[in-house]
């Protein structure tokens, strides 16, 4: 083999093995860091794992937001109109957090309560996170919601 071909072969072997290692690392990192999404109904049925970071999406149920008068602790229900999940959170809620609005919370289930480490509400009032749409569709309440919005 002439030196030029040899060099090219080594470069290609290097590229392929480098990419292989990188993709392997990426897949491993993915398996460690993905957050599965659950609907309130799935959680009520106990389908969600506890102690693992998950996401829950739905609407903030009317009249369920309770604030602690001394600290930044807050609790509220997330609903897909079939079942509710009680969520606790400590910190500042996003500007668009409101009763009756779509929300996605990320956190862990701890003794029947969902302890959120992050609360996401979107920055466009007409925008519904796809996860929330999915949760409402699964509970069969999406049409009802959309109808309600139009009136």
């Amino acid at each position: 083999m002439n030196p030029k071909r040899k060099q090219r072969l080594f470069i290609i072997l290097g590229l392929v093995s480098g990419l292989g290692v990188a993709v392997g690392l990426v897949m491993y990192a993915l398996s460690q860091n993905i957050n599965l999404f659950f609907t309130p109904t799935q959680i009520a049925k106990g389908e969600a794992p506890s102690a693992q970071m998950i996401r829950v999406g739905g609407m903030v149920a009317d009249g369920t937001v309770d604030r602690d008068p001394q600290s930044l602790k807050v609790a509220f229900d997330v609903t897909d109109f079939d079942h509710n999940v009680r969520v606790t959170y400590e910190g500042i809620l996003p500007d668009l957090f409101r009763e009756g609005q779509g929300v996605v919370v990320q956190g862990r289930i701890n003794q029947g309560q969902f302890v959120a480490s992050e609360v996401l509400a979107k920055h466009d009032e007409n925008y519904m996170p796809p996860e929330v749409t999915e949760a409402l569709r699964q509970s069969g309440k999406l049409d009802q919601m959309m109808g309600g919005q139009k009136q």
């Binding site: 690392l25 990426v26 990192a29 993915l30 460690q32 860091n33 993905i34 957050n35 599965l36 999404f37 996401r55 990320q106 796809p130 996860e131 999915e134």
Partner: peptide, 14 residues
Amino acid sequence: GGKVSVGPPFFNAV
């Protein structure tokens, strides 16, 4: 495979 999300820990790790 259902709805999943990939967060900052993944991107930082890689």
